[in-house]
Design a protein around this nucleic acid. Structure first.
Lengths: 342, 342
DNA sequence: CGGTCTCATGTAACCGGTTTCATCCACCGA
DNA sequence: TCGGTGGATGAAACCGGTTACATGAGACCG
C-alpha cells in the first residue's frame, strides 16, 4: 500500500525551505515567519506528513513515555488506579506503557532493569513494594510509588492511603453500631510480595478498638491468601460456632465478599445476624451493597501521574508525599448489633 | 547522579573494536568471533551499557511497540482481555502502550490518527466498532480487532465471540430448567459507540426460544444504558407485577447483578422465585455465584495479540478470523422453574 | 552612508544505534 | 608462488528528526 514514508526533508524541499525551518514550523516555534510557517504546514498536510516519533525521541533525548509497573492488572483496584493515571497522561505528550506483574520474579526483573533501560522518562510503581533498596531504581529516572509503604521508599515521592486510619474508621463505625464481638479477616502475614496494607488495617482496627476497651479474640483473627475463597473458609470457621462474632472487618472487599458467602452458607443473614465491612470500594462493592472503606483509587492514580510529570519536568530534591484520607462508605451490609442494643 | 549515558561507541573504544563489531556482538550476530564477542560483552557489563531503545527503533525502522485501543479500561471484561494481551507481549520484544477510550470523540480521534502516527508496529482494537471505514485505519499498520462485529471490519483480521450462539446457549439452559416466561434486559438499541453484542445476544435468545415455540412478551424486553442501576430499574418494572417472568437473561453480568438487586428489593429469592443468567463471566460473577455465559476473555486477548504479532511478522493478505465459542457456566442463580414442574 | 541590531533562515552536526560494502588476513589447492 | 575463498572486522552512510551556530537582509541610527 503505502509507498514510502514522507520525511521532513521531503516537506522542506517541496516547500522550498530548509529542514531546520520545516522543523521549527512543525513545532510552532515563534521564530519563524507566519507566512513561511503557514506554507510549510500546508505542504505538510498536502503530503500527509507525520513526524516520526522515534526520530523525535532520539534527537530530543527523551522517550516521551511513562511506564506503569502494576501488580495484578485485573484486580479492580489496579484498573481503577490505572484509569486515574490515564486521565492525566492522555492529555499529555506522554505515551503510557504498562508492565504487568503477577509474580515476584517478574517484579524483581522489572524493578531491576526498568530504571536504567532508557525506555521511559519516568516510572509509576503501583502496589508493589520493591524487594531491596529502591533508591537505586530511582537514580536513573524519576519514580513515583502509589500505594507502597515499605521503608525502602521512605525518601521517594509517593501517593499513599492511610491504612491504619482506614482500619480505625471501620472500628469506629462498628463500635457506633454497638458491636463488641468483632473479627478480622486479612492477608497472610508473610506474602511473597511484602504487601503491608492488610497488616496496617488490622493494626488500625485493633488500636481503635483497644481505645474503647475492646480486644479481638485471637481465634477471631484470620490470615490467609488474598482471595475470596480463602476468606470464605476462614470466616466459615469463625462463624460456625454459636459463640460467634457479630461483625467482621475484612482487609479488602474481595475478602469481604468471601465472608458474606460464608455467612450465606451458614444461613446467617447480613446484616441482621452479621455485619460485614470491607476495604477498597471496588466496583463490585457497589453492586453488592457492601459497606466499605474507600481509598480513592482513581484519585491515587491521578495524583501519582501528576506527581511524576512534575518530577520529570524539574527533578526537585525533596520527595513529595501525598496522603489520601480513607473514607467510610456505608451501604447495606452493616447494621446495629442486636447484642449492643440489649 | 548519573554522569552521562554510555553509548556503543564508548564500548567499542574500550574494547578496541569498531562500533559495527560492538553492535554485532550485542545482537548475538553469528558472524563475530566468539572471543571478540565475549570481550565486547564483558566491557559492556563493566561499563554498565544499556542500548538506547530510541536509537534502535529509529535505525531499525520499527517501533517495537504495540498499541491497544481499549474501551472502558475499568470494565472487568476489558481488564481480563488486556491480561491476555499482556501475557503474549511481555514475552515478546514489544512494548504495550494503551489508549483508553471513554468517549466517542476520543475513539474517533485515536482511530483516525493512530494508524498513521508511526507510534506502533501494530494495533489491537478492543470492543470498539470504528465509526466509518476501518480499512483506512489498517492501511498503514496491521490492526487486529477483538470483539468487534460491524461490517466495517469484515475483511480484517479479528477475534470474535459468537454472541448469537451465546444467547441461544442461555435460552436452552432456561428451557431445560422448565422456564417459559423469560425476560431480557440489555443495552439501549442506539448507543453512541455502535456496540452490537447486546442486540446479537437478544436475537440468539429469541431465535432459540422461538424454535421451542416460546415467544418473549414485548413488555418483558428491556433496553437501557449499560449499567447496573439502569438494569435494576428495568427489571424492577418487569418484576413488580405478580404476572412476572420466572427467568431473566441479561446481556452482561453487570446488568444481571442489577436484576438480582431488583429481585432483592422486591423480596424475590434468587433462584427460587427468579432465575437470572448473565453474560461475560467477569470476576464478580464468580463472587456472587452468578450463572452466566463465558466468552473466554483472557483467550480473546491472547489470541488477538498472537494474531497481531504474526501479522506484523509477515503481512499476509488473507485476514484470519478467530471465533471463540461461548460456554455456559452454571452457578447458583438459575434453578428449575416451579411452573415448569407443575 | 556605514555600522549595528534584529529577525528569518540555512548549514551542518548530533542523537545512538544498525547495516552495507569494502578491506584485510589466513588458509587452501594447484 | 599465486589466485581463490571465506571469515572477521572496520569505515561510513543511514534512520528522521532537533538545534547550535553562521549567514543574510532589512530597519534604524548617528
Amino acid at each position: 500500500m503505502s509507498k514510502k514514508a514522507v520525511t521532513i526533508r521531503d516537506v522542506a524541499r517541496e516547500a522550498g525551505v530548509s529542514v531546520a525551518t520545516a522543523s521549527r514550523a512543525l513545532n510552532a516555534n515563534a521564530i519563524v515567519n507566519a507566512r513561511t510557517r503557514d506554507r510549510v504546514l500546508t505542504v505538510m498536510s498536502e503530503l500527509g506528513f507525520t513526524p516520526s516519533p522515534a526520530a523525535r525521541r532520539l534527537s530530543l533525548g527523551r522517550t516521551l513515555t511513562v511506564g506503569v509497573v502494576v501488580s495484578f492488572l485485573t484486580r479492580p483496584q489496579a484498573a481503577e488506579r490505572l484509569r486515574g493515571v490515564d486521565a492525566v497522561l492522555s492529555d499529555s505528550e506522554f505515551d503510557l506503557v504498562i508492565y504487568n506483574v503477577e509474580s515476584v520474579q517478574k517484579r524483581d526483573h522489572f524493578l531491576a532493569t526498568l530504571g536504567h533501560s532508557r525506555r521511559t522518562d519516568g516510572l509509576l510503581v503501583m502496589s508493589l513494594p520493591p524487594a531491596g533498596e529502591a533508591a537505586d531504581l530511582a537514580s536513573a529516572v524519576p519514580v513515583v510509588f502509589i500505594d507502597v509503604h515499605t521503608p525502602a521508599v521512605a525518601n521517594l515521592p509517593r501517593v499513599i492511603g492511610d491504612d491504619r486510619a482506614g482500619g480505625a474508621l471501620a472500628a469506629r463505625h462498628l463500635l457506633e453500631l454497638g458491636h463488641r464481638r468483632i473479627a478480622f479477616v486479612g492477608d497472610s502475614t508473610q506474602d511473597p510480595f511484602g504487601f503491608t496494607s492488610s497488616r496496617d488495617r488490622e493494626s488500625g482496627l485493633a488500636e481503635e478498638l483497644a481505645r474503647a476497651g475492646v480486644t479481638i479474640r485471637p481465634d477471631w483473627i484470620g490470615h490467609g491468601a488474598h482471595g475470596r475463597y480463602e476468606a470464605r473458609d476462614l470466616a466459615h470457621r469463625m462463624l460456625a460456632s454459636p459463640d460467634r462474632p457479630t461483625a467482621v472487618f475484612a482487609a479488602s472487599d474481595t475478602q469481604a465478599l468471601g465472608v458474606i458467602a460464608a455467612a450465606r452458607d451458614l444461613g446467617l443473614r447480613v446484616p441482621d445476624d452479621l455485619s460485614v465491612i470491607g476495604y477498597d470500594d471496588i466496583e463490585a462493592a457497589d453492586y453488592v451493597g457492601l459497606t466499605t472503606v474507600s481509598q480513592q483509587l482513581f484519585e491515587s492514580g491521578r495524583l501519582g501521574a501528576e506527581l511524576l510529570l512534575s518530577q520529570i519536568r524539574d527533578r526537585t530534591d525533596q520527595p513529595p508525599v501525598v496522603r489520601l484520607t480513607p473514607e467510610l462508605v456505608v451501604r447495606a451490609t452493616t447494621a446495629r448489633s442486636k447484642e449492643g442494643r440489649g
